[in-house]
Amino acid sequence: MNLLNYVPGDSFLHRLNPVTKLAAAFMYGIAAILCENVFAEALFIVVMILISATAGLFKRAVLLTGNLMILGLIMFVIQLLFVRDGSPLLVIGGVVLFTTGGLKSALLLSLRVIAAMLPLMLLFAITRMNDLCNALVKRLHLPYRYAFIVTTAFRFVPIFATEFHDIQDAQKARGVDFDTRNIFRKLGLIAPLCVPLLVSSLKKVDVSAMSAEMRGFELRGYKSGYKEYPFAARDMVTVLVLVVLIVATVVLKTIPK
């Protein structure tokens, strides 16, 4: 399953204005970044998963969290080895391997990464890229050109993936064995495919640009969009809740322990 594709739905989250969704995802992330409490950080993740569940995305949220944990783990290890505050926690042969301070900040940072990234990842499940692009142009007057480039880049990912598989299949048919477990050997086999992939990708991008131009891309302004993306009461409420969340996070931080 593709963890970033759109999941059609009619939930509260789905019906929010795309601009609101984007802003909300960012604000939630900002709150998570401002937060300095390990338990609160974990709570951010759990709450996000529960919110996703209201849009029928419980499984997706859990899977995404799982995937983000890999990133979290990397951050965890780096932080653990480099932060030296607090008292020694593990000493082997007179060398302090890590400290209490290290453990605490490693835990905080890895949870924070997951909590901040999760809403942005979930954004893709409830927002069509096209709608996001059109709404940003219509509401915030973002130049259409940039919005289009971003949405096109996303659309091309699966096309390139298919292309890559086709090229790989062609190589397999010639007897190249990609099923090796040796990662270096595998890299050695995949590297030569990059050139044909790049060439065919550039061709595809060319066709895409030509097709857009011939259909009047250059003539477009922010008023051109047919679909209106009005803000509704639920958008106001959502933004308000998130503003409160950020303020609360900041206030709680300043309260002395």
């Binding site: 069509r128 096209n130 595809k204 991008v205 066709v207 895409s208 030509m210 097709s211 857009a212």
Partner: peptide, 15 residues
């Protein structure tokens, strides 16, 4: 109006 040979690349939207 022209429909190009590479059908996938000429699409500009996902829906």
């Amino acid at each position: 109006g022209e429909v190009f040979q590479d059908i996938d690349s000429q699409m500009v939207a996902s829906v």
